[in-house]
């Protein structure tokens, strides 16, 4: 089946066999390996991508379902200047340890900051509740996201 969609800002046309999940398409055929597979069951959020701007689990979607939609992966977020503060803040605060959860966390954080410029700690926690981290204990991640939000706010002044 021929499928047209937007991927990280560019239109793409692909012939899909229909046996893939979105995460398989991204990692195995398109070589976008920044998106990780943890649980494969919608529980860990390592596979989070943006579907029309909203965080979703790419392990729970069929690749064919993205026809006509826009997908942004961690590669797209990382290349987008608007989100540079998030990546920097994650590095500075030590919010990255083994790093397996980081792409998904950053994608979820990007979606949050795009709709809420001044998130409270609780709003950050709620937005990241679908992203599990086994290493950091979350406090550094929350610190990173609120630091990124502050910087974005300052720049806009």
């Amino acid at each position: 089946m021929k499928v047209r969609f937007k991927l990280n800002g560019k239109f793409v046309m692909l012939d899909l066999p229909g046996v893939e999940r979105l995460i398989d398409l991204l990692r195995e055929r398109l070589d976008l390996v920044g998106t990780k597979e943890g649980c494969g069951k919608g529980e860990c959020g390592a596979c989070t991508v943006l579907l029309d701007g909203k965080p979703v689990c790419s392990c729970l979607m069929l690749a064919s379902q993205i026809a006509g939609h826009e997908i942004v992966t961690i590669e797209g977020v990382a290349a987008d200047n608007r989100y540079a503060h998030i990546l920097n803040a994650f590095e500075e605060t030590g919010a990255v340890q083994c790093g397996y959860c980081s792409p998904g966390m950053i994608v979820s954080a990007a979606a949050l900051l795009a709709r809420n410029r001044h998130p409270s700690d609780n709003e950050i926690k709620r937005a990241l509740a679908g992203n599990l981290c086994r290493c950091t204990g979350y406090s550094k991640i929350i610190e990173a996201v609120s630091r990124a939000a502050e910087r974005v706010a300052q720049e806009r002044k």
Binding site: K54, A127, G130
Partner: peptide
């Protein structure tokens, strides 16, 4: 329900 990712789909 679930998490934001789950609620979005």
């Amino acid at each position: 329900v679930g998490s934001l990712q789950i609620r979005n789909r």
